[in-house]
Amino acid sequence: MSDDLVGGYDLVIFDLDGVVYLIDEPIAGAVEAVGKLRDRKTPVAYATNNASRRAADVAAKLTGMGVPAEPAEVLTSAGASATVLAEKLPAGSPVLVVGADALRDEVREAGLTPVESADDEPAAVVQGYGPDVGWRVLTEAALAVRAGALWVATNTDRTLPSPRGPLPGNGSLVAVVRTALDRDPDVVVGKPGPALFTTAASQSHARHPLAVGDRLDTDIQGAVAAGLDSLLVLTGVSGPADLLAADESSRPTYVASDLSGLFGPADEVRVPLEADEAGGWRLTRDGDTAKLDGSGDPVVALRLLCAATWSGVPLSGLQATSDAARALLERWNL
């Protein structure tokens, strides 16, 4: 077993959007990181809240990017949602599908009947992300749920990461129906629920998996709920300010700028960093204030500051006493 971070785990469960790729382009270093795990025979899995592709399509997309993947290694919220519906409904039951063709195909393969209108008296509505979801189908969903249909959401991610910045995600579309009905979905299947993580671990017979994600409110919170260690990478949605403000339910075990953090010593990415000085930075705490001085790796500073904010210092109490520290806090909008 290696003495780096990943050497302490028998499975790495990756989120995809914001971790391995952004839309259709791999994130710098991701291909090399997964390749290194493959060379070391470290099992990997991919757990994604994105319901717009089936497992085989996701595996093909990854392979086309230079990240070899098998469909059995991919768990999607679309497939998991179809499984949940099949467990709750009689075979052949009509289900109104809001989302992409992938979700419709998963519902059909689960032995249920996809429909498009509330007039078809669906037993359930399943809602997942799709780039073409519009007012008409959201209206049908609201009518069906109001008439008594079970409402299942594949996930509630408010945004999707992209090279142009965060884009509306399924959570934003769910919010449209939630506003119209003044109620929440009956079931939310994907992260931050633990099911995708626990299923991945079970399929790989893993005893000590590591979850890797870019979102505190889904990836990391889901890992915490599943009882798994987690690594937050700063290549997607959640940034330093979000991490500093995170509550206990969404705090990762480790934080790194990108997937290269998997291959360094665990103690160099563990968060929080309980110290007065590290890596050229100095942290001085006085009651409800914490002063950052010096210069160095921004992630080291972030880990030091988490020790302060996670133990009671408000974000407004963070102060900079060096040019490098001031530039860093300004960049983090603090």
Rank of each mutant, 00 (worst) to 15 (best):
L305F: 00
L283Q: 02
K41Q: 15
P298R: 07
A195W: 13
Q203M: 12
M1W: 10
P114H: 10
L232M: 04
S172W: 05
D293L: 06
R207S: 13
L85N: 14
W135R: 15
A110F: 01
P252G: 11
A195N: 09
V58Y: 02
G8F: 10
V97K: 00
P94I: 09
W281R: 12
D297V: 07
A118F: 01
T76M: 03
A180K: 08
L210G: 13
S77N: 03
A78L: 10
R285T: 13
E268A: 15
L262P: 06
P68K: 01
E116R: 15
P240T: 11
D286R: 15
R164C: 10
D4R: 04
T83W: 14
D3V: 14
W135M: 12
D184P: 00
S316P: 13
L173F: 05
L328A: 04
D323M: 09
M65S: 02
E116I: 10
R38P: 12
A308N: 03
R285K: 11
S311A: 15
D132L: 14
E330T: 14
T218L: 03
G171I: 01
F14M: 06
R326D: 14
T198D: 11
G7E: 00
G294E: 11
A147T: 04
R331Q: 14
A82S: 13
L167D: 03
L231K: 07
L244E: 07
T309Q: 03
V271E: 08
P43R: 15
P71H: 10
A245S: 15
V187H: 06
W281H: 03
V188Q: 02
G111K: 07
L228Y: 11
V6E: 11
A47P: 14
G222W: 08
V189A: 05
A69L: 00
D17C: 13
P161V: 06
T42I: 15
L234D: 02
A245R: 14
I220L: 11
P166W: 03
S316H: 14
V20I: 15
A275C: 05
E121T: 12
L328T: 05
H208K: 15
L304W: 08
G317K: 00
A153L: 02
V12D: 00
G239I: 10
A308P: 00
R331P: 00
D288Q: 13
V6Y: 09
V145P: 01
